[in-house]
Write a protein that binds this DNA or RNA. Structure first.
Length: 134
DNA sequence: GCCAACGTTGGC
DNA sequence: GCCAACGTTGGC
């Protein structure tokens, strides 16, 4: 099983929206690196959800409920989407500043490559973020 | 609201 | 195939 982190601008789709919807199609990704990661997702993989822009924290956990399929929001068949399912909300949201000040998390793309919206996490990184979440 | 970083596009 | 120009993202 693999671990991932996806980013969303809450103005377009927020964590609260996912809680309300229970599951959602994660589409609209228009970056090849991010797309390649989407294509590697398998049903049951764990996905941490990060909100960018106004909030800047990891809000909780989702899981992959459908692996990649063509993104129906575009005619261009190079792009794919997955379906994510709500799993759990963190007790304490893990903010970007906390992540930045955690030595074990310096290598994740959230910090190194701030514009990448879908990135892999190691099991260790996932565990550390969960610990920070209380 | 600004600006830096970076990915993508298109001309050569 | 390179590189300049452009557009977008996201942190501050």
């Amino acid at each position: 099983m693999a671990y991932w982190l996806v980013k969303s601008d809450p103005e377009s789709y927020s964590w609260a929206d996912l809680i309300k919807d229970k599951k959602t199609t994660w589409d609209g990704v228009r970056n090849f690196q991010a797309r390649n990661n989407l294509m590697k997702m398998e049903v049951g993989d764990i996905v941490l959800v990060y909100e960018s822009q106004s909030t800047k924290y990891v809000a909780g956990i989702a899981s992959v409920s459908k692996s990649s399929f063509p993104d129906t929001t575009t005619e261009d068949n190079r792009w794919v989407a997955v379906e994510l399912k709500f799993e759990k909300e963190f007790k304490n949201f893990v903010t970007l500043s906390v992540i930045k000040s955690t030595p074990e998390l310096q290598n994740i793309a959230l910090i190194k490559q701030s514009r990448l919206s879908v990135m892999p996490l190691t099991h260790d990184e996932y565990n550390i973020i969960c610990q920070l979440a209380g």
